[in-house]
Design a binder for these strands. Sequence first.
DNA 1: GTCCATGCAAACCTTTTGCACTATA
DNA 2: TATAGTGCAAAAGGTTTGCATGGAC
Lengths: 166, 166
Amino acid sequence: MSATTKADAYIRLFSRYLREQGLPVTHQREVVADIVFSSGEHLSVDDIEREVRAAGERIGKATIYRTLDLLVKSNLVGEHDFGEGFKRYEHRLSREPIHEHLICLHCGTVIEFQDSGVHRIEALVTAEHGFRPTRHKLEIYGLCRECQLAGIALPREGLTCPIDSV
Amino acid sequence: MSATTKADAYIRLFSRYLREQGLPVTHQREVVADIVFSSGEHLSVDDIEREVRAAGERIGKATIYRTLDLLVKSNLVGEHDFGEGFKRYEHRLSREPIHEHLICLHCGTVIEFQDSGVHRIEALVTAEHGFRPTRHKLEIYGLCRECQLAGIALPREGLTCPIDSV
DNA sequence: GTCCATGCAAACCTTTTGCACTATA
DNA sequence: TATAGTGCAAAAGGTTTGCATGGAC
């Protein structure tokens, strides 16, 4: 359980949220929050469980899930689904709170990037469809530089250009 | 089991794909393909199962899953996960094969829209990160016009503006 | 002291798999 | 006739829930 001053500040923020909601601040919640806030990665529940054990703590999986729910509700943590069959969590306390993801289909690396283009698109759909956006998800899947250099090629399957062949 | 000429053509396309792969064209595969190609919706496996029964057919759930795998592999059908805990499928045979989704957080309606902005973003990340995109997913969650007019408001939870409050 | 959280195990839900049987080519 | 598909049920895997116990306030 690392304890940078930054992570500490975020844990205090989470504690404040819990108190605001009238919920107890428990040791388990602090441990899970510390792990998530101290990491720059997109953590799976398994990752978190492993770090809990590495820190010499014993916290049930259900408690981890329940704490993650609270962290997500508090808006301090974001939940992601990169199509792996399980979810990943990352804290939102970087200087770039809103960012998009590049996901390498070969090695699974996740690269974060920022682009204001989505805001333009959001403004557009508001105008065109009367839709009021609250959040969005932009994920670009492909091959990262390293995998390209390693000569990896993604298999092409299926019919190509189905429309033309009708 | 509807049978517009359009859906028929698509089923033939799927049959061609199966033959190309040396796989048998079975009745079950044709029925599932017909349902997916005849629908303009984003169908869940449950939806498909229901339509199978409505058509007087009896097809096991496993076969539906296995056929959907083939449809996705053929590139004729797209798989989506809107965070509901299960997947949805839609055929890719509209005149706008690549499109993004607006998902209403209240009523669940899915609106499709097109925007070339993502291509600009993809070109950008290729230049900046050496990433080679193959596909992307842009989903914007919020309130559709109807729900706004109905006076629906999404609850604001969590700490607001966490960064400033550190 | 009250209320909520925790831990464990069981339940849940979607999706996948094993296997005996059937249908395609 | 050989090969692959189908249906059923069981398994798998991530996530949720019920309940008795323990901890926060």
